[in-house]
Design a protein around this nucleic acid. Structure first.
Lengths: 204, 204
DNA sequence: AGAAATTTCAAACGCTAGTTTGAAATGCAT
DNA sequence: ATGCATTTCAAACTAGCGTTTGAAATTTCT
């Protein structure tokens, strides 16, 4: 069917499995869903990945490592770097074509972490926390360690929580979800940036 | 076994089903889990609730309506009311004995809403939003409608997001989860309150 | 080219889930 | 007490899941 790459069976499975796992969840996704989408045989998953969990662990691994590629412009002022961080985080939720499924998968893992994910978590935290921490420290040098640490998590929790709660946004302001995705992303980015800048700058 | 109430089969099922659904998820929970915990027959669920989804919808209904009972002290100043709102929201996460399972169930629904939940969502939003909106309006009368609306959702998203992301807190500060729950709840409540007060008061 | 290893495939196996069934037990009016 | 409706029960049914299997097809190596 879709033959844009002369990929092996293994590669085709890996390619289609990510979005399906993200969409339906690890448990709800069936091997039959995946092999049908990939156009390969039932047993292919078990042959190439040992079992369903093996496939899932591999999907998770490439998703995490794919998401950890960020180039940071360290020269810019903290305020601008924060805006960029927020923009990138929010954007992920609306970029369904490229990497949206990776974010969905992470959200599911946050809800109930799987064994392979816990192993990868340290990598994620170690990758993003230093950047955020530096931004917060520059925005408000008066904060002590613990306050800065909590502010970092407030910021990240915010970037993930708001886009995910769009249901609620829609409920309290019907029509929100009808706006184009780019506009929603822009508006959330602006608000979160301003909200967190005000908070970090003015806290205590 | 536990016979504190001479409840009917139907009531016993309804009583044990909530925590189990919250713990294992709607799909992963089996009817056999529930009937075993309730000490009733297999077919009882299908007889009293038509099918598994019927039971789930009923569990969700009572959980939501049980959670909507809040007495608000409208006389207090906005700052204090915000603190109380945050405290109550955070507390829910740590109160596993009484109502913890209801919160877990809501979090699962936020992740991927079920059909019956969508119906109940308007009730939830309609119940809590006016209160929050009034608090925000008093804290910063200069905000326009849209800004106030976004701040409300920032606040609520924050109250839910931070406690749920304790995994990340633990990863970036090992030992966090070893502290007693009451202390963690207190610390998060303090931080979220201060963070959001600074944000709402100082935004734009 | 021919042999060996690897990969693909259709089919079936074992298991667990939700649901159905029909009879037995219970409650409740007359 | 008797008859009828409701509720409980053990057991079986159906469907879908992950996995296994052994042979066929393909690739790789000498």
């Amino acid at each position: 069917m879709d033959n844009r790459s002369p990929s092996s069976t293994r590669a085709r499975i890996l390619e289609v499995a990510g979005p399906i796992f993200a969409e339906k969840g690890r448990r709800e996704t069936t091997i039959r869903d995946i092999v049908q989408a990939a156009g390969v045989n039932q047993a292919a998953v078990n042959y190439h990945f040992r079992d369903k969990d093996g496939l899932y662990a591999e999907v998770l691994r490439v998703a995490v490592h794919g998401g950890l590629k960020t180039e940071s412009e360290e020269g810019a002022p903290a305020e601008q770097r924060l805006r960029e961080l927020v923009r990138a985080s929010v954007q992920r939720f609306y970029d369904h074509e490229r990497q949206g499924w990776q974010t969905r998968l992470m959200m599911r893992e946050l809800e109930e972490p799987s064994a392979p994910f816990v192993t990868l978590m340290d990598e994620i935290v170690g990758h993003i926390m230093p950047r955020v921490s530096r931004i917060v420290a520059e925005l408000n040098p008066a904060l002590d360690d613990e306050q800065r640490w909590l502010c970092c998590h407030s910021l990240m929790s915010h970037c993930n929580g708001m886009p995910k709660a769009e249901f609620f946004l829609e409920r309290s302001r019907p029509g929100w979800l009808n706006r184009p995705a780019a506009e929603r992303a822009q508006q959330l980015t602006d608000h979160i940036s301003r909200f967190c800048l005000a908070a970090i700058g003015g806290i205590e």
